[in-house]
Computed example of a mutant assay.
Amino acid sequence: MLDQLLNGVLPVFGIGAVGYVLGLRGTFDFNMAMALNKFVMFVAMPALGFQLLAHAPLAEFDQAMLAGYFVTEVLMYTAGFLIARLVFKTDVMEAALLGLAIALTNHILFVLPIAITLFGEDAVTPIVAIISMDGMLIFSGSLILMDVLATKDASLGHTIGKVVRNPPLVAMTLGLAIGVMGVSVPVGIDVFMDFLGGAASPVLLFALGIILSQKASGSRPMLPVAITGVKLVVHPLLAWAIFAGVLHLSPEVRNPAMMVAAAPCGVMAFMLALNYGVRVDAIARAILYSSIGSLVTVTVAAAL
């Protein structure tokens, strides 16, 4: 277990820590973090989404595992939304993103590089399957929801036009179409997308560290604690009950998926909050608390 912590979890976690330290020192500030976030949203994330879906081994995905994991995501999304909206009285957009933070874990930026480091690329197909499903369903659906909520006073045509021009959505749609058709991506485009997509994880984690270093509002201190508890305790237990108790999945499929369920709150919710002007203090703190807690939960899941 110590090997998983030292050689897989901590190196990735350390990127955000570097951003936090440099933010505290004033080397980077909130506006700089916003610029980094926009780069990820409009450049790096579309490239990463395209790469993942264009090269995803769709035929190798375990459909039962994906169905079971999707059930956990729907339940966690609902729980996060209701806790934020009914208990802590947040607005609808913030509640939706707090639900997303629980459902859409930090797999693509945190779990995947850890799993590849520890087990190699051949052993992470279940994680790639979940990432692909999340890109097509959870993340895309959340982008559409945020566009609709952000333009609720606009005409239907304007809202639809904004949705269909959303860079991550366009890129993931193209990547999925290429993956389904089995079309080979030209080498030059592949290298270009791979190079850009590789920047998404470290840049966004670094920007998150900067945001977390800024002085936070003292209100609603229990909201991120509640979200973290649901993410790191309820979600893994629910996933284990479905994977082991209901579906009886093999360890080769179950354990990588458990790493995803045990991962911290998703950074994508933070990125969307910044992009749509939603309050970020609770989301950022939930990501911080769950990232620290996941040093234990992800390490345990990796050692199963």
Rank of each mutant, 00 (worst) to 15 (best):
I242H: 03
S201P: 00
M181D: 13
I102M: 15
V185E: 03
D281E: 13
Q4V: 02
F139M: 12
A216Q: 15
D91K: 07
L223K: 06
F139C: 06
L100G: 03
L82D: 00
D281W: 05
A123H: 09
L75M: 12
A123R: 13
G245D: 04
A177L: 15
V170N: 03
L238C: 07
P221T: 11
M268K: 05
V296C: 02
V12H: 06
P236C: 01
A150C: 07
A101N: 10
H235P: 04
D147N: 14
A269M: 05
L6S: 09
M1V: 04
F192V: 03
L58Y: 15
D29W: 07
E252F: 13
A84P: 08
D153M: 06
G277W: 05
A79M: 10
I178F: 10
F13P: 06
M133F: 12
M259S: 11
L204D: 01
V183Y: 12
R254I: 02
R285T: 12
W240H: 03
K89G: 01
F70D: 03
A54Y: 00
L58S: 11
P224Y: 01
G49H: 02
A226P: 05
R165T: 15
A262W: 08
M181F: 14
P236W: 04
H158C: 08
N37V: 09
P224G: 04
T27C: 10
P224N: 02
M271H: 00
M146I: 03
V12A: 11
N31M: 12
I102S: 10
L272I: 05
P224V: 03
M181K: 14
L205E: 05
F88Y: 14
F61P: 02
G23M: 08
G141C: 11
I160D: 02
